[in-house]
Nucleic acid binder design. Sequence first.
RNA 1: GGGCCGUUAGCUCAGCUGGUAGAGCAGCUGACUCUUAAUCAGCGGGUCGGAGGUUCGAAUCCUCCACGGCUCACCA
Length: 491
Amino acid sequence: MREINELIEQRIKKLEELRQSGIEPFGGPFYAEDHASDLLNKFDSVTKETLEASPFSCSLAGRIISIRDFGKAAFAHIQDTTGKIQVYFKKDILGEKHSVVKKLDIGDIIGLKGRLFRTKTKELTVEVEDFILLTKSLRPLPEKWHGLRDIEIRYRQRYVDLIVNPQVRETFAKRGAIIKAIRDFLESNGFIEVETPMMQPVPGGAIAKPFKTHHIALGIDLYLRIAPELYLKRLLVGGYERVYELNKNFRNEGISTKHNPEFTMLEFYVAYRDYNFLMSFTEELITYVASWTLGTLKIPYGDTTIDLTPPWPRIPMFEALVQKDVPPEILNDREKAKAWAEAHTIEIKGDATLPKILDEIFKKIVEPELVQPTFIIDYPVELSPLAKKKKENPELAERFELFIASQEIVNAFSELTDPIDQCERFMKQVEAKIKGDEEAHWMDEDFIRALEYGMPPAAGEGIGIDRLVMVLTNSQSIRDVILFPQLKPEQ
RNA sequence: GGGCCGUUAGCUCAGCUGGUAGAGCAGCUGACUCUUAAUCAGCGGGUCGGAGGUUCGAAUCCUCCACGGCUCACCA
């Protein structure tokens, strides 16, 4: 497993030589007072002459990412969490210790103290007065110029990707900022963050295949959650009016540029509101997050620009179909719908119901066109087993999805609070399950019991955080926004 | 799961119709006290993803396998 090549051998040899001369190659701690980019920013307009007249002492810790050796002097760049800065080793100043510089490699982590100056070419540089080796690196880093390109190594050894590709560090820093902005926004709107079970005896709240596991002491099978929905609604029954959970869901399904088996979902619930409220709230939330993290609502994505300026169009699902030249007469005729779909090379399962056929057509015909943010509203009730029916049309649910960059980012609806109706819909799902629909919803009797105590009218929403981060960081693959995406094991 | 593409030195990549493996960077030795893809001189480094097959001879052609990418299918 652990291959030792010539390059690693050479570094181990250096490590041993350092030890013999009394230098610990894995030392620490080291309390640096400065960071690379902070110094570069702070002294941006300070001239060479000013620095010479009033010297500034600083200390840094970081990884050596390049070295240019001149025998009795050497330049290097040190990279820390903020960025990189040049440092200058000089025998006149370091004396005997300069011999240690010869033993330093690209990749080593050092701590240093020194004085700022500007080189002939005006680059702000630290003249090193003293330094300490903190970590000897044994494995050579990728090439300085081309960096690390191999996608497989980038995903498997993300630590290397992060060392050598600054854009990758930036993407994941943005991801962190996005999640912080979401929490800030929700907290300032009166939400409390809760944690509900990831291991559930009955996996509910979505339509998906779960991962199954087993608890030995309890002697029962458990499922990794596919959604937190039913637990969060129980909390509304319990009296919380605004709750959210931002954490992982797990779905045992295909992996693609838009799907990872574990992914991050925000779900939040608001008592006494409906889906119309949520659409406006979603506009506020996403524009807040984009402004706070990117400082703009006009976002480059691939070869287009996405404009998040609200309001976003709200188009009923059937209307969206008709707008894309789907003939209106198929909307309430299963046979015609099936024939039309198949004529347009959309595969339809033999026993698919009309709403499912229309959903397939929507995904193929409409979804790819939804590049700018668009709410699609009023889905067939059959596709929405947990959503409230529309008063004017009980065939439709008070539900919307938000699409950006041809991807479903949000799914939300006015919640069904009627325990009798909910129980009937579960029964229908169970029937479908018995008929072989692997993804039909399970019966959750405790959830029905909770509803029987009474849940306030409410609206709930799920936001796919990974996909939102993709849009906001111009990433074409979900693997580029997940630090350690799922891959098959090596070998 | 299907289709297409890829896998060669630590990294980035060449390698033609089959003839015995190359460059740049990194590394090692030496020179050099303002370089920044430092420079100059010299040197080392390979299970060509794996296993079979065809052939006098395979990185190259064929088959299977592994891993990855894209895509279709699947998938709120």
